[in-house]
């Protein structure tokens, strides 16, 4: 019988691989927290921790969208301007046209879906590589944003709306609950639906998926729609929190989303990764920022930390893979 010479307990399993990927990151996160609590007295206070969660929430939400796309072997560089375009349109609807906030949000989510659809169609039907396609739409949507808002800054949103991003429930920022909800929904989608299985399959091997009869185009388009909608939702919460909308907010969304996804262990060419990883990725990014604030390090060095963490995370995963392969013999 083949493989009888390899010990059963260490043979690589998918669930185990995913578990290790998440646990190792969680461990890193916890170690960071422990180190921080020694380095600064203000770290381990409820206020500070809630602050971290509150700021990580929108990054996670947008990151979740990017994770879905990257898992399917794509990438979405248009998030910045999807966020700004849908954001300013929603803002004008709410403030200028006095449309109730829930309708405005819904309409703007619908618009986000449409923008995602455009991305998806360009990638699947016109067959442009996602990198190029979403960069093109990034520029396109950016231009449309400017046309729409023309330099204005909109503020003065309704209390109901600003509650979403800035309000608190039992002292906990509401946005954290929203992020939790998004997490649960995306986890459900990725882990417990046929759609999720297909996303992983396409990312792992598009050709084999095609042979299996999976309708690749459909799934990829859906992934881009999800990504754009989450970018939209994220931008809505963001506007809600800072209570203003202008043409250039949204800058850096895509980069942060990709960073959170990569740090979280999602492989760049898809098929491997978890949404839990992205949660941790967003938390790690925020932890670094927070750490720098508390330690008095200029915020300008954040990028350095983020960049290093991305590279270390990916190197770490490569190393773990090598170790796993050794057990296979």
């Amino acid at each position: 019988m083949e493989n009888s010479h390899v010990k059963p307990s260490v043979r690589p399993k998918l669930a185990l691989a995913r578990f290790i990927s998440v646990i190792s990151r969680l461990a890193v996160l916890l170690i960071m927290m422990v180190v921080m609590s020694f380095l600064s007295h203000s770290f381990f206070t409820t206020n500070n921790l809630l602050n971290i969660l509150r700021q990580a929430a929108p990054i996670f939400i947008i990151g979740a969208g990017q994770t879905v796309v990257i898992l399917a072997r794509g990438i979405d560089l248009s998030m910045d301007s999807v966020a700004s375009l849908t954001g300013v349109i929603m803002a004008t609807l709410m403030v200028d046209n006095k449309v109730p906030f829930y309708w405005s949000m819904l309409l703007s989510l619908g618009l986000g879906a449409l923008l995602g659809l455009i991305n998806g169609i360009i990638v699947t039907k016109i067959k442009l590589p996602p990198f190029v396609a979403t960069f093109g739409t990034y520029l396109l949507f950016k231009g449309l944003t400017v046309l729409w808002i023309d330099g204005r800054v909109i503020s003065g949103f309704s209390k109901d709306f600003t509650f979403l991003g800035a309000g608190r429930v039992f002292g906990i920022p509401f946005i954290i609950f929203i992020a939790l909800l998004v997490y649960l929904i995306v986890r459900l989608l990725l882990r417990y639906t046929t759609f999720g299985r297909k996303i992983y399959a396409i990312g792992a091997n598009p050709e084999a998926s095609r042979v299996s009869g999976i309708k690749i185009d459909r799934i990829v388009i859906a992934a881009f729609v999800i990504s754009a909608m989450l970018a939209t939702f994220g931008s809505q919460l963001y506007i809600s929190r800072i209570n203003s909308a202008k043409e250039d907010f949204g800058e850096g969304f895509a980069l942060d989303a990709i960073a959170a996804t990569l740090i979280g262990g999602t492989s760049f060419d898809g098929g491997v990764g978890t949404i839990e990883g992205t949660v941790i990725g967003a938390l790690i990014i925020l932890l670094l920022r927070n750490a720098m604030n508390l330690l008095g390090v200029s915020g300008l060095w954040q990028g350095l930390a983020t960049g290093l963490v991305i590279i270390i995370a990916v190197l770490g995963d490569t190393y773990l893979k090598k170790v796993a392969k050794k057990y296979e013999g």
């Binding site: 998918l14 639906t193 999720g196 299985r197 084999a208 299996s212 098929g271």
Partner: peptide, 29 residues
């Protein structure tokens, strides 16, 4: 390896890959 299997996925997921819609009609796995 290149066209028949998703190597990064598990055995059980590879087996079910061509029958996802058939097996899980509700869409939930």
């Amino acid at each position: 390896k290149q066209e028949g299997l998703c190597l990064a996925l598990s055995l059980k997921e590879n087996i079910a890959r061509a029958s996802l819609d058939q097996l899980f009609r509700s869409g939930f796995v």
